[in-house]
Computed example of a mutant assay.
Amino acid sequence: MSKVKIVSIIYAIGIIIGALFFDVWGADTTPLKTLSVFAWTIIFIIALFFVDKNERN
Results as ranks from 00 to 15, higher is better:
Lys3His: 07
Val37Ala: 11
Leu32Gln: 10
Ser8Thr: 14
Thr30Gln: 07
Ile46Asp: 06
Ile15Val: 14
Ile42His: 04
Asn54Asp: 09
Ile6Lys: 13
Lys53Asp: 09
Leu32Asp: 11
Ala27Glu: 07
Gly18Asn: 12
Leu35Val: 01
Lys53Thr: 01
Leu20Ala: 08
Phe50Ala: 09
Ala12Cys: 15
Leu20Asn: 06
Thr30Met: 01
Asp23Phe: 04
Thr30Asn: 03
Thr34Gly: 11
Phe38Asp: 02
Leu20Thr: 06
Ala12Phe: 15
Trp40Tyr: 08
Ile6Gln: 10
Ser36Lys: 10
Ile15Trp: 01
Thr41Gln: 01
Tyr11Ala: 13
Leu32Ala: 15
Phe50Glu: 09
Asp52His: 12
Ile46Ala: 13
Thr30Gly: 02
Arg56Tyr: 06
Ile13Pro: 05
Phe49Trp: 06
Val24Cys: 06
Thr41Cys: 03
Ile6Thr: 11
Thr34Asp: 01
Ser2Pro: 14
Asp52Ile: 04
Ala47Gly: 04
Ile46Tyr: 15
Leu48Ser: 11
Gly14Pro: 00
Met1Tyr: 11
Val37Trp: 05
Ala19Pro: 02
Leu20Pro: 06
Ile13Tyr: 03
Val4His: 09
Val24Pro: 04
Val24Leu: 14
Val7Ile: 12
Ile42Tyr: 03
Pro31Gly: 05
Arg56Val: 01
Thr41Ile: 00
Ser2His: 14
Lys5Ala: 10
Asn57Lys: 12
Ile16Val: 14
Asp23Thr: 02
Ala39Asp: 00
Asn54Gln: 08
Leu20Arg: 07
Leu32Arg: 10
Leu20His: 04
Thr29Lys: 14
Lys3Gly: 07
Ile10Gln: 14
Phe49Val: 09
Ile9Lys: 15
Glu55Asn: 11
